[in-house]
Design a protein around this nucleic acid. Structure first.
Lengths: 337, 337
DNA sequence: CTGAAAGCGCTTACAG
DNA sequence: CTGAAAGCGCTTACAG
């Protein structure tokens, strides 16, 4: 874990080489205007000549500041999350922050460990996409350290914090209503983890759309599963064993929808013709899938941008009021429903 | 960019609270065995009571060591890269390293800037997925700082460094040969940036397969494009305008293949029936696409794992010899060819 | 506009 | 097994 290096050139050496004091050299590296142009040039030359590299770690230690931000996510390979990260990165790097990234692989223990590590690394703030089982205690350590935090993607009950997420309920409502408007009365809801806030909110919208139309949900048509293609495949096979199968399917996300379509084909159905399908997320593949998937667009990149912006606000403003930002989704109608 | 915090509890305060010297407290946090169990417990209790958080930054500064690793990638939203990152992360976090992640968004200027930032942050080592235009100079600064580095995914000519990548040439050879064996004589090669090492190597394999079979390449059938779905779409539309169109298509990667299939459908062809398609990468979607895509599997996650391992080797072994690790791809035959 | 000295929170020899 | 003092590479008042 340790790795001593060849000695770095220090600011002191630069100062000596340039014939000024260390304090002056320090002011030069930080572009302080009260240094004369002449001195500045001399020092800059010495820096170049000696191959000086600024030691941000030492500087941050002394000035008790930080220009790193910790970001903890559950799974990079999830397309929603990786797009989210793009948004976070472009916003944070733009203003000179460096990102410490940790992946919890959906393990609470790993998440706890990463939180500790980030605090030990003196991050200026933190963006957290929490694992499902996260509780208030997990997160309170941050408040104790007085480290600004933004929660993203998944909301945590009982945790007071800035939050950026999608209006899953509304998205789910739109998707379900679209299917009802097409005349469907038996609409399955497949995939997703029943205990997660993201599932519960979708269930809410699905329920509400039914209520509005005076329709009753057949609980046999609601099957949870991991939010993956494999999960969707299993869920649809289970629901098809039903004596009275659904005529349309609302899927937890697009990956689940792909699995569902695969399962339908295996069972001899023609997705989009025999059975209508709606997904959620609008991942790039949904557009080129066969048939193109009707889905709810959920703006992962913008979610990342907003999360980063909220954090930057906290970082620059101590009297920052707690904010909750919910991005509105959009229904993208294609051929699958 | 700065954000002064509420004062942290220091090791000194812990030591005073526990009635020992700072040195002793320091040995306790680092689990040094030469501290008696009794003292250790007292100190641990004080730490808990005061809410002490270890300051790794100060520790690293003093001991001239580092437990961070910089990772610079071109684009997180690329599936190959995000899977690669998963491999890097799981390997590095396992042994206690923290990842500083930077995204160059394929810009040389941004990459240069990120390199500087990482060095300023005293990273122990670096994994770099270089942007196309990177030159030796870009990278030599690292050598000057004596910072261990591993190049990944794209190789850089004239740069001496550990490298982990895929045998693109072999993969391309297998894909092309598969099409030739199926009786095709006019095989297009679509997509990818002509100047990138990854394109050149694929071209090489494509060429070699033709040579072996005594076939001649029609240069009108070789169309480059961005390595995206949109790129594939445009490339296939262009190649179809050919008076003598291809009977099979080898695509730069799976995304390109998806765009190609979309274009074929637009033009009234039935991909996998009228025209055979082979992709490259074996992204998860290739399996569930319709028709399922014949493609070359390129093990992005393992590439990440190996890159991290090589870096760890360098970090723990000064006399480390330069290594070049090329992962062998695999042809996955599905229904599209 | 510039310099000498103290200090950020740790670790590292060196004593005992 | 434990302690007092110096130092990692910077920045920060304070003088001048």
């Amino acid at each position: 874990m340790k790795h001593p290096k060849k000695k770095r050139v220090t600011l002191q050496e630069v100062a000596k080489h340039a014939g000024v004091s260390t304090a002056t050299a320090s002011l030069v590296v930080r572009n302080n205007p009260r240094i004369s142009d002449k001195t500045r040039k001399t020092v800059m030359n010495s820096m170049k000549e000696l191959g000086y590299v600024y030691d941000r770690v030492a500087a941050n230690l002394r000035s008790q500041s930080s220009n790193t931000v910790g970001v903890i996510i559950t799974d990079i390979s999830n397309k929603f999350i990786s797009e989210f990260l793009v948004g976070v990165h472009e916003t944070l790097e733009e203003v000179g922050y460096t990102v410490l990234l940790g992946t919890s692989f959906d393990s609470l223990a790993k998440q706890d460990h990463l939180l500790s590590t980030m605090l030990e690394h003196r991050v200026g703030g933190l963006i957290l996409d929490p694992v499902s089982g996260s509780n208030a205690e997990t997160v309170n350590r941050l408040n104790q350290m007085n480290t600004p935090m933004v929660l993203a993607v998944r909301e945590l009950p009982e945790v007071k914090s800035d939050y950026v997420g999608i209006n899953y309920r509304k998205g789910s409502l739109m998707a379900t209503k679209h299917l009802i408007d097409k005349g469907h009365k038996r609409i399955a809801f497949l995939g997703g983890v029943r205990t997660s806030s993201t599932w519960i909110e979708r269930m809410d919208g699905y329920q509400y759309a039914h209520d509005n139309a005076g329709l009753i949900i057949d609980n046999n048509l609601v099957v949870d599963s991991p939010p993956t293609r494999e999960g969707g495949l299993e869920a649809v096979l289970q629901v098809l064993r039903n004596p009275d199968p659904p005529t349309a399917i609302f899927c937890f996300n697009d990956l689940v929808a792909f699995g569902v379509m695969q399962g339908l084909r295996m069972e001899g159905f023609n997705p989009g013709q025999d059975i209508d399908i709606v997904g959620f997320d609008n991942i790039p593949e949904s557009d080129v899938y066969h048939p193109p998937l009707t889905t709810v667009s959920s703006f992962p990149r913008q979610t990342g941008v907003e999360a980063a912006k909220l954090l930057l606000q906290q970082l620059s403003d101590d009297s920052h009021e707690q904010q909750r930002l919910i991005l509105e989704p959009e229904l993208i109608v294609r051929e699958s429903a």
